[in-house]
Simulated scan of single mutants.
Amino acid sequence: MKKIRFAGILALGLLWVSCHFTEEIHLNGDGSGSIALQFDGSGWMSDSTLLGGRQTRVDSVIRFAEVLEQRQDLSPEEREQLEQLRPYQMRMISDPETGEGSFTLSREFRDIGEVGDTFNAFQNAGALDKEKGGTPMGASKEAQPSTEVSYSFAGSRFTRRSVIVDSMLHQQRLDSLAGGDSFLVGSTYKLQIHFPSRVKSVNQDKATLSIDGKTLYLEADLVQYLKSPEVLDLEVELEQ
């Protein structure tokens, strides 16, 4: 497994440049589909230390299911953490010449209800030990979630809900952002959801729709989302 050099970038207290997350869901009528979370890190491409000194374009894919099969030297704790990433793959693109830089964590699903919090999964992927060729660092405090997101799709109703599951840990992470908010000015978390039929109603006034009415867009300030994840909660009713 190739070395991963984005652990520091994803630590909530260490985000020091403007960045953008886009959560994109393609949903089929039977509830199956795909989800991808892209981190646009073009802002840090000028820092060669984050790229390991590389000066050439990199476009690589890590499939975590393959890592689990190939790595027989993982401890039980490491394997347990990596098992949470089994359905996912991570694509990394970095190009020092053009300034392009992104990480995309994606997976397919048979039922969107089986999809957990992809943002937490993204941070767990970022907790892979870059000095050990991608071995998880174990059940570190940074890898433990303080929030969870759940999805459901039944009949013509879609929901996305966020809850704070560990208020003390959540507050600790918010405290770690204190004084660093200014570095995140302009950073965003966007939702882009493609539905199998037109949207009839949505509970978010700020949500917008595509011309055909089948794609919903919603955006929040990243700091606001980190503090109050419910700002991106959705209840959507589709036309039948």
Rank of each mutant, 00 (worst) to 15 (best):
A36S: 15
F39V: 05
D40A: 10
D40Q: 10
S42R: 13
G43I: 00
M45G: 00
D47C: 03
S48A: 11
S48H: 05
L50Q: 13
L51D: 06
L51G: 15
G52F: 10
G52P: 09
R54D: 08
R57K: 14
V58I: 11
D59P: 01
D59M: 04
S60P: 00
V61A: 01
V61G: 01
I62E: 14
F64C: 06
F64R: 08
A65Q: 13
L68T: 02
Q70N: 11
L74V: 08
L74E: 09
S75N: 00
E77V: 12
E83M: 11
E83A: 10
Q84F: 08
P87N: 02
R91S: 04
R91K: 14
M92S: 07
M92T: 11
I93T: 12
I93M: 04
S94E: 13
E97Q: 15
E100Q: 13
G101T: 01
G101Y: 00
T104Q: 09
L105S: 02
S106M: 12
R110T: 12
R110C: 07
R110P: 03
G113D: 09
G113K: 03
V115S: 09
G116L: 08
G116I: 07
D117N: 15
F119I: 14
N120F: 04
N120T: 12
N120V: 15
A121L: 13
F122H: 07
Q123A: 11
A125L: 03
K132H: 12
G134P: 07
T135I: 15
P136H: 03
M137H: 07
G138P: 06
S140M: 11
S140I: 14
E142T: 08
Q144S: 09
P145Q: 07
P145C: 06
S146H: 03
